[in-house]
Design a protein around this nucleic acid. Structure first.
Lengths: 244, 244
DNA sequence: CGGTAAGTTGACTTAAGTCAAGGCGGGTGG
DNA sequence: CCACCCGCCTTGACTTAAGTCAACTTACCG
């Protein structure tokens, strides 16, 4: 049932850096199985110290933190190729939760093997650090957006980011991409109320910039979107990223 | 002039994990010099690809991102023991700037040597990843705070965080710690306007919770501070961290 | 068919932002 | 030595973006 790493369909995407046959063999040994989860399931829980690490093979989800008050901050939208559980791997405990919003397929790694990567495969270790540094970078950008920009700009920025990510993975069809989330999720990601999020989306729709139907977002005007986001437009050039 | 690593005064702090004599020798080889910078100097610039990496030996600073509009998001306050320039090391380009707010002393490493750490010193490579993952964790917490909490709670949270960090480094005297920043810096860190930041500080002062004089913050009531921050109080237990 | 979960919209409230005026050192140069 | 300026902090009066409340529509599902 589990796909051998050498045939991993994700590797066909060209944002992922190519690896040698030998490295594939190693990753294959590291892989302990495959996991399929239903929409709505929690993969990782804040405070837990999951014995497993995952790479997303298919499906989407979200990372978030919850407050005792019930408020929630969505930290990131999870796409195929993302590596989950690094915090548990490094620090022994997750500091956020991860939930599937569509059905997801995950490649499961055993945490006990984790340090062996560092010992025997410096290039992979480097890749893991790269991923961590990249996450850090994106979180910083998100913080700057949420901390400094008004609602429309935040929204436009988020849509651009999602579009670019989806495009890099070949998930777009023309100008639209899958958006299997609720408005509440987007609201929690941008630090806005649900109602205000809805009204902001309506504004983008009315201005013929972007619209959201049937779990898909369609960008009607990339220029308009970039303008709404303020500057910060560039950036779309995808760097190739490692796939663990 | 440069202090040999074995005598590095920071190593005396017990938040930093101990290292063997042999590892010290390696770090010593990696170290290419020492740098002293004046307050107000830019150490690293967004968009640059600094050929150097730094560990902060003394002094404080801040990391921030600027927008074309002139707005600024402070991502983090920099303390001794922090490792700077990882993004440039991994991705070839910094995505934020770092500025000294006091005089700082930095331990300089050569970026060309960077990959050798991964190749020959898996434990150090692991430490670097640990640092990256920890930064990611803190940014996530900051994002959640800025995205979800009202002004007083943000402020209280920030003060607690600063106090804990300073305490772990032995920089506190009783209930006060050095705060060599301007209110504008704090405002930019919390996503608040300068005026509102000032009024929020006044509120904490009036409630006898915390006050700010002569570049030092004094906590009058840790309990009151924790209460103002909402929950999220715990956390004060310092994990030991690696020092590169 | 009810029942529930998500999206939409309008009316009203409020936290936070903006504007503007002073205050308080600390330098510097006439 | 005083006067002026400059950067930072402080405060009050007013504006506004965003939040809250609440009603109503869909759409899906057993």
């Amino acid at each position: 049932m589990p796909v051998p790493c050498r045939n991993c369909p994700l590797r066909r995407c060209d944002i992922f850096a190519p690896v040698t046959e030998q490295e594939l063999a190693f990753l294959q040994r590291f892989k302990s199985g495959e996991l399929k989860v239903a929409p709505g399931m929690q993969l990782l829980m804040e405070g837990s110290n999951s014995p497993q690490l995952y790479t997303v093979l298919a499906g989407q989800g979200l990372r978030y933190k919850t407050f005792a008050s019930g408020r929630r901050q969505v930290l990131n939208f999870v796409f195929p190729g993302d590596f989950l559980g690094l915090q548990a791997g490094m620090m022994g405990e997750m500091h956020h939760s991860v939930e599937a919003t569509t059905e997801m397929v995950l490649c499961v790694f055993d945490r006990k093997e984790f340090f062996n990567i560092f010992r025997h495969h410096p290039e992979r270790a480097y890749d893991i650090t790269w991923l961590a540094a990249t996450e850090e970078h994106f979180l910083g950008e998100t913080l700057a957006t949420v901390g400094q920009l008004p609602a429309v700009a935040r929204m436009a920025w988020a849509l651009m980011r999602l579009f670019n990510r989806a495009e890099a993975l070949g998930m777009t069809t023309g100008d639209s991409f899958p958006m299997p989330y609720r408005q509440q999720d987007l609201a929690d990601a941008l630090g806005l109320s649900l109602v205000h999020t809805n009204k902001t989306l309506a504004r983008l729709r009315d201005h013929q910039i972007a619209s959201w139907h049937d779990g898909h977002i369609k960008i009607h005007s990339h220029a308009g979107l970039a303008e709404s986001a303020g500057e910060e437009a560039g950036e779309s050039a995808w760097m190739t990223r490692p796939l663990i």
